[in-house]
Amino acid sequence: MKIRDWRSVAFTGATGLATFCIVAMVVVILGNIVWDGAAQMSLRFIFGGTSEGMFDAQKAGVFPMIFGTVALVVLMTIGVVPVGVITAVYLTEYARHESLITRVIRGAINNLAGVPSIVFGLFGLGFFVQFVGGGIDKVFFGGQLHYAKPALIWAAATMAVLTLPVVIVATEEALRAVPHGFREGSLALGATKLETIWKVVLPQALPGILTGAILAVGRGAGEVAPIMFTGAAYYLAHLPKGPTDQFMHLGYHVFVLSTQSPDIERTKPILYGTVLVLLLLTFLLNLTAVLVRAGIRAKLRAANG
């Protein structure tokens, strides 16, 4: 064989090996979690609470954390999608593309995406909890403590800011993919810009917007740092009754179990079980959004012939 052939074989081998390593890592991680986590799975574990023994594998459950995580993700989505979509609509449909303001906004969004998540946690504590919450308390409750404390809504708001760039970028891409001819056709009929965006452009961009929401949900369900100071609790006797209560969270629970347990060996099964539930939950949330998107795509395809 010539040298060139050897090189080719070596390179093919190297790329193959790298790929194999990645797949192997995923298999090992998932396999380990599923194998050890499955042993902990039971209806009692999923629907039980922590009141009878947080660190006892025989008694502990994760229902409050499942509840808290789902509530957080739902509230976060309600917050991030409208703001993200409106921003993207402004950037693609209204703003002048080369203007300084547009470039500054775009730069800000990119930087936002690069900020470490713990910084968002501190920001959430300073801005949402103390400034916004404190302001509400001062104005509406005469300084009584109602909002100026870590709470589900502040954690959701912080997480919404964290996932904002994902939604904006995905929506912008979806809007740009809508053919220009649709906009011109609508405007030429005497439609206003708002009617054009609302009735022609956004319906076409909906699957892309949902892709953004899916990515945001995936990120929001897994992040722990932003909620540590803004709403997640170490232990609560009750489920949160409203958005101003604190909540327990699967990811934070993993952190608590692995750092606070008096006997790590006895806690290990709960740890595995919690991680597995978190993975399954993220998967389930994503699956729901993917199914919704598939439904909308099918409808659009029918309209697109």
Binding site: P179, F182, G185, A188, L189, G190, Q204, A303, G305
Partner: peptide, 19 residues
């Protein structure tokens, strides 16, 4: 907007809405 209601337009590339 009123002007475009009075002066309609047909484009080079047909652009029916996906409806």
């Amino acid at each position: 907007i009123e002007l475009r209601k009075r002066v309609g337009m047909v484009f080079q590339k047909s652009n029916p809405f996906p409806k």
